[in-house]
Design a protein around this nucleic acid. Sequence first.
DNA 1: CGTGCTGTTGAACGAAGTCAACCCTCGTGG
DNA 2: CCACGAGGGTTGACTTCGTTCAACAGCACG
Lengths: 213, 213
Amino acid sequence: MRQIIEERTGSYSRHASVPDMHGAYLRVAAHVTVLHEGDTARRIMEVVEGAMMLTKLLPDGRRQVVELLGPGDVFGLAACDVYACSAETLTTAVITTHDRGALDRDPALASRLLRRFETQLCAMHSHALVLGRMSALERVAFFLLRLMPESVVGGTLHLAMTRQEIADFLGLTLETVSRAFSELKRRGLVALLRADEVQINDRNSMRRLAGAA
Amino acid sequence: MRQIIEERTGSYSRHASVPDMHGAYLRVAAHVTVLHEGDTARRIMEVVEGAMMLTKLLPDGRRQVVELLGPGDVFGLAACDVYACSAETLTTAVITTHDRGALDRDPALASRLLRRFETQLCAMHSHALVLGRMSALERVAFFLLRLMPESVVGGTLHLAMTRQEIADFLGLTLETVSRAFSELKRRGLVALLRADEVQINDRNSMRRLAGAA
DNA sequence: CGTGCTGTTGAACGAAGTCAACCCTCGTGG
DNA sequence: CCACGAGGGTTGACTTCGTTCAACAGCACG
């Protein structure tokens, strides 16, 4: 584990040594691939701090960002014995890992993960609705609302993702995402301070667009 | 107990109260809505036998089938305190239910559900890739492979879903699904004995289409 | 100042959606 | 036993939304 993290952090590498201990915290730089789709699944991980994304690839290179993760979210899952997704940090992040065997030995851990799996599964259900049935504009509105919790009212949201990454999350192309942002701006629903700095002006209209999600 | 079963089989009776018996089995007829999106989430359920689908609706009536369930799969999930999806039987089915509180009291149950959630979450990840990045033909190929396990080689697959339901699962229209079936038939990858009776003739080509999934 | 990214915008194209006609199968009742 | 009707499925013609291809703009960095 230790080598993997350092290996992948490349030039960003910071913490020289992180022991491979149960529940150990790892700090990882932004834009680092922590897990590779198809690698043997040995450990299960949690995001403690920061943001990450899970991605899947098609043989011809088409990519889907299947899930966005924040603090508390779990990743490193496997249907059989290999990881189903790659996992990449969007920001610097702190993660913790557990041996897969610990799930059986530690009921408290199992209970916590179970709870978390449930919310992630529900999030995936919403995402399926977005990918399967929503227009480009609706998808982008949904995306922004999802990232902007109620609390942050007049606040400005910093996007840690490029247009391409957002597109891969929403099942669109980067051009279409860009056009959708422009359209939302034209309609006065959002303001773009910079390309990665968004303000939601008309939350109700946004919610209507996103299907009251 | 008995009454509830009959009550449900009659027609889609909205919201029958389920007896609070741990692990009771319920037999339900085909095409019955067992759970309604938005209802208060009291119980968590497992499919014992048969097939079901989970659906979500947009205010304007657009529908997405977010998940297909078979024996062992869990449903009745909620991110907050209400069900995130409706659940409907595709065939006659046997289900069992647990009080949500049982998750904390019963570690064996929690462990089993955890395992199951993991595979369902992985299935959702695949599904996101399908919905976000695959063409119509690829989606239908993927769908058929998913329903046709390796074992059944020359066998014929009975589809328990209409074209509309398949379309809602794959994020397409029923016409597009129909055209995709015809195209697969034209190419000799499948044979359609009847509209709901499919045979896979060229598994390799199908797998290539579906992205080696 | 270039140079290299990322993002925006325009024009043309194409895959899937829409609308509509028709077909097939099956169950029912004359 | 056949005729009919209803529901699901197929196919065709046309439209539309998002993609593709391409040019250009803003900005950070050397």
